[in-house]
Amino acid sequence: NITNLCPFDEVFNATRFASVYAWNRKRISNCVADYSVLYNLAPFFTFKCYGVSPTKLNDLCFTNVYADSFVIRGDEVRQIAPGQTGNIADYNYKLPDDFTGCVIAWNSNKLDSKVSGNYNYLYRLFRKSNLKPFERDISTEIYQAGNKPCNGVAGFNCYFPLRSYSFRPTYGVGHQPYRVVVLSFELLHAPATVCGPKKST
């Protein structure tokens, strides 16, 4: 009989979030998941669920729940959905087409922007091929755009693959930082360890 609440607040209220290319994953298990708490945590810009209804979450049980978190800019949030393409979905964080879970995003301009520009958040701009779903690539190998090998040196047709967002508070919403948490629900042929409040007794 599990009584402890799932530590969603640790994920959502973390002081620092990860850069999207090096997104963070927390496995959540053996706890009571009260998803209604999430609705009250922040004024969400996005709370979209796929393959599951957000209002039914509190009635369900899962084997595992994974919470992935990272920062992107406002106009990239739409890429965090099944079947999307674009720089983020292709080279940084890719959801599977049959994704079961929820994408939660909110504006973090007050936390993640600086007047002089916050350069701490990076994204991958160049990659030889698209990522597979939930693949994480943290390599910093020089990207070869031409025929000549780069031998690890940046220059003509040889690019450092990561680029930094420079978040400034005066930017338009599309270029402001957004914190994203992706909850993916895993149903294996194994005992369910993460249940809503109704199912945990």
Rank of each mutant, 00 (worst) to 15 (best):
T3R: 12
C6V: 06
P7F: 08
P7C: 10
D9Y: 11
E10R: 09
E10V: 09
F17K: 03
F17V: 06
A18G: 10
W23T: 02
R25I: 01
R25W: 01
R27E: 11
S29M: 09
V37P: 11
V37Q: 13
A42R: 15
P43V: 09
F47L: 15
C49V: 04
C49P: 02
T55F: 12
T55C: 07
K56W: 07
L57Q: 08
N58S: 13
L60E: 10
L60F: 10
C61L: 07
F62C: 07
F62P: 09
T63Y: 10
N64A: 15
V65A: 12
V65T: 09
F70E: 00
R73F: 00
D75T: 07
D75L: 08
E76S: 04
E76A: 04
V77G: 03
Q79W: 03
A81C: 06
A81G: 09
P82S: 03
P82E: 01
G83K: 13
T85K: 13
G86A: 03
N87W: 13
A89V: 06
D90R: 13
N92V: 02
K94G: 03
P96M: 03
F99E: 00
V103W: 03
I104P: 00
N107I: 02
D112N: 02
K114L: 10
V115I: 14
Y121R: 02
R127F: 01
R127W: 02
R127A: 06
R127N: 03
L131G: 01
F134C: 05
T140C: 08
E141F: 08
Y143R: 02
Q144I: 06
N147W: 07
N147R: 07
K148C: 07
C150W: 02
G152D: 11
V153I: 13
F156N: 06
N157D: 04
C158P: 01
F160R: 14
F160G: 08
S164P: 13
F167S: 00
R168N: 00
P169G: 04
T170N: 06
R179C: 00
V181R: 02
L183N: 01
L183Y: 04
F185Y: 11
E186I: 07
E186P: 08
H189N: 15
H189C: 08
V194Y: 11
K199R: 14
S200P: 13
